[in-house]
């Protein structure tokens, strides 16, 4: 929806050896939501962004940034 927001979810998933489905379950969203966030097709809500950042134990701006 916006092409300006980039993210490093895939990198963090690889570091934590997490599948999209596993991360989705932890955050409380569907796998499709995670996959569309990763490819920049869907801009997540603040709550989802914060949940992802909290799960990886990093500030939200480490995962999401504006191009």
């Amino acid at each position: 929806m916006s092409s300006e927001l980039s993210n490093r979810i895939r990198v963090y998933r690889a570091e934590h050896r997490l599948s999209q489905g596993a991360l989705a379950e932890i955050i409380g969203v569907s796998r499709k939501t995670i996959s569309t966030i990763e490819v920049g097709k869907f801009v997540p809500s603040t709550v989802i962004s914060l949940k992802i950042a909290r799960h990886f134990g990093v500030p939200v701006e480490d995962i999401f940034s504006l191009n």
């Binding site: 939501t33 569309t36 989802i48 949940k51």
Partner: peptide, 11 residues
């Protein structure tokens, strides 16, 4: 209730 209601499909 554990589901986040702002997912891609809802959007």
């Amino acid at each position: 209730s554990s589901a986040e209601l702002n997912g891609y499909i809802i959007e």
